[in-house]
Computed example of a mutant assay.
Amino acid sequence: MTRLRTLLVLLVLWCGVAASALAGPIYRVTVDTAALAGQGGYLDFLFLGLQDAAPATATLSNFTGALEGGGVTAGDASGSGAGRVILGNGSGWNEFAQHVGFGGLFGFDVTFEVGGAAGDSGTNLTLALLDDAFQYVGAAGDIVTFALLPGQADGVTTDGNFATVQAVPEPGSVALLALGLLGMAVLRRRSR
Rank of each mutant, 00 (worst) to 15 (best):
Ser61Asp: 10
Gly79Phe: 03
Leu8Glu: 15
Gly38Phe: 05
Ala82Arg: 13
Pro171Asn: 14
Ala118His: 09
Ala23Val: 09
Ala21Tyr: 10
Ala77Leu: 12
Gly141Val: 00
Phe63Gly: 01
Thr30Gln: 14
Val110Met: 05
Gly88Met: 13
Gly71Cys: 05
Gly38Lys: 06
Leu148Lys: 02
Ala133Arg: 11
Leu4Met: 05
Leu7Ile: 09
Ala178Asp: 07
Tyr42Arg: 05
Ala37Thr: 15
Val168Arg: 03
Gly160Asp: 15
Met184Phe: 10
Phe102Gln: 04
Arg5Tyr: 06
Cys15Gln: 11
Gln166Ile: 11
Gly24Leu: 07
Phe108Asn: 06
Gly83Leu: 10
Ser191Asn: 00
Ala53Pro: 04
Leu50Cys: 04
Leu50Thr: 10
Gly79Asn: 04
Asp32Met: 01
Gly180Gln: 06
Leu177Gly: 10
Glu95Ser: 05
Gln152Asp: 04
Tyr42Asn: 03
Leu46Gln: 11
Val144Gln: 05
Thr59Ile: 09
Leu10Pro: 06
Ala34Glu: 14
Asn62Cys: 04
Leu181Asp: 04
Phe108Trp: 12
Phe47Asn: 03
Tyr136Arg: 09
Ala34Thr: 12
Arg192Leu: 13
Phe47Met: 01
Gly41Thr: 10
Asp131Ile: 07
Phe63Val: 06
Phe106Val: 10
Asp142Met: 11
Pro169Thr: 14
Val100Glu: 01
Ala19Tyr: 06
Trp93Asp: 13
Phe108Cys: 11
Asn62Asp: 14
Leu43Gln: 12
Gly70Arg: 11
Arg28Asn: 12
Gly104Trp: 08
Ser173Lys: 12
Asn89Gly: 08
Leu129Val: 08
Gln135Leu: 12
Ala77Gln: 03
Gly155Leu: 02
Thr157Gly: 00
Ala128Ser: 15
Ala66Tyr: 00
Leu182Glu: 03
Leu127Met: 07
Val186Arg: 12
Asp154Trp: 05
Arg84Ala: 13
Val100Cys: 11
Leu8Val: 04
Gly103Arg: 12
Pro171Thr: 07
Gly122Lys: 01
Gly183His: 13
Pro55Thr: 03
Thr158His: 08
Gly79Asp: 06
Arg5Leu: 11
Leu129Arg: 13
Gly41Asp: 10
Asn89Glu: 05
Ala66Asp: 15
His99Phe: 04
Val100Ile: 15
Ala82Gln: 15
Ser191Glu: 08
Gly69Cys: 04
Gln152Thr: 01
Leu187Met: 13
Asp44Arg: 10
Met184His: 00
Gln166His: 06
Val186Ser: 03
Gly16Thr: 11
Gly104Val: 00
Thr145Glu: 08
Asp131Pro: 02
Leu87Gln: 01
Leu130Gly: 09
